[in-house]
Simulated assay, not measured.
Amino acid sequence: MAEHNDLGRLGEDKAAEYLQAKGYKIVERNWYFHHKEVDIIAFDGDTVVFVEVRTRTSSDVLHPRDSVMPLKMRYLILAADNYVRYKKLDNRIRFDLIACISHRDGRWDIEHIEDAFTAQAE
């Protein structure tokens, strides 16, 4: 597996731990609809939260929160719509972003952006 894939998996693990510590109930990880993936699907109370996790090293120029492009947002929205229909859910939904930054000394910075974008994003 490529090094960036390992880093991404580690970031997703850190994000899942972070959400669980905040009381979220994780129900899916790496959920696919065709080629569209949702990193984490969780419940924050009664709200279904679709979480995009972006991971970078501290030496990367682009901050992970700045790496989510409109096409990725649209794919997340399509996947979320399919998930809600498939599970027959009638809950409020939200799209969050978790930006994870790995430091050489083993520290991690985690930034959780609730309502990072809406289903109207284009």
Rank of each mutant, 00 (worst) to 15 (best):
M1R: 09
M1P: 12
M1Y: 11
A2W: 05
E3F: 13
H4N: 11
N5Q: 13
D6H: 10
L7R: 15
G8F: 11
G8T: 08
R9P: 02
R9Q: 11
L10N: 07
L10D: 08
L10P: 00
G11H: 06
G11F: 10
G11E: 00
E12R: 10
D13S: 02
K14Y: 01
K14L: 06
K14H: 07
A15C: 03
E17P: 03
Y18R: 12
L19T: 04
Q20R: 14
K22H: 04
K22Q: 14
G23W: 02
Y24F: 15
I26C: 00
V27H: 09
E28I: 09
Y32L: 11
H34Y: 12
H35E: 13
K36V: 04
E37K: 02
E37L: 02
V38L: 15
V38P: 00
I40H: 01
I41M: 04
A42N: 05
A42K: 00
F43I: 07
D44K: 15
G45M: 06
T47E: 03
V48P: 04
V49C: 14
V49M: 03
F50A: 10
E52W: 04
E52Y: 05
R54T: 10
R54Q: 14
R54F: 05
T55E: 10
T55S: 12
R56C: 13
T57V: 05
T57N: 10
V61F: 14
L62Y: 09
H63L: 14
R65F: 15
R65V: 14
D66I: 05
M69N: 13
M69C: 02
L71P: 01
L71T: 02
R74T: 01
Y75E: 14
L76A: 10
L78P: 01
A79W: 06
A80K: 07
A80W: 07
N82A: 13
N82V: 01
N82I: 00
Y83C: 06
Y83M: 03
Y83D: 07
V84A: 05
R85H: 09
R85M: 13
Y86S: 08
Y86F: 12
Y86D: 08
K88P: 01
K88I: 05
K88L: 05
D90Q: 09
D90V: 11
I93L: 03
I93P: 01
I93M: 06
I93Q: 04
R94K: 10
F95P: 01
F95C: 08
D96Y: 00
D96M: 00
L97S: 03
I98Y: 02
C100D: 06
I101P: 03
I101R: 06
I101C: 01
S102E: 06
S102Y: 13
S102A: 13
R104N: 07
R104K: 12
R104A: 12
R104Y: 03
R104P: 03
R107Q: 14
W108Y: 14
W108I: 14
D109F: 11
D109W: 11
I110M: 08
E111G: 08
E111L: 15
H112Q: 15
H112W: 15
H112S: 07
H112Y: 15
I113A: 02
I113R: 06
E114V: 02
E114Y: 04
D115A: 10
A116F: 15
F117H: 12
A119D: 10
A121N: 08
E122G: 05
E122V: 09
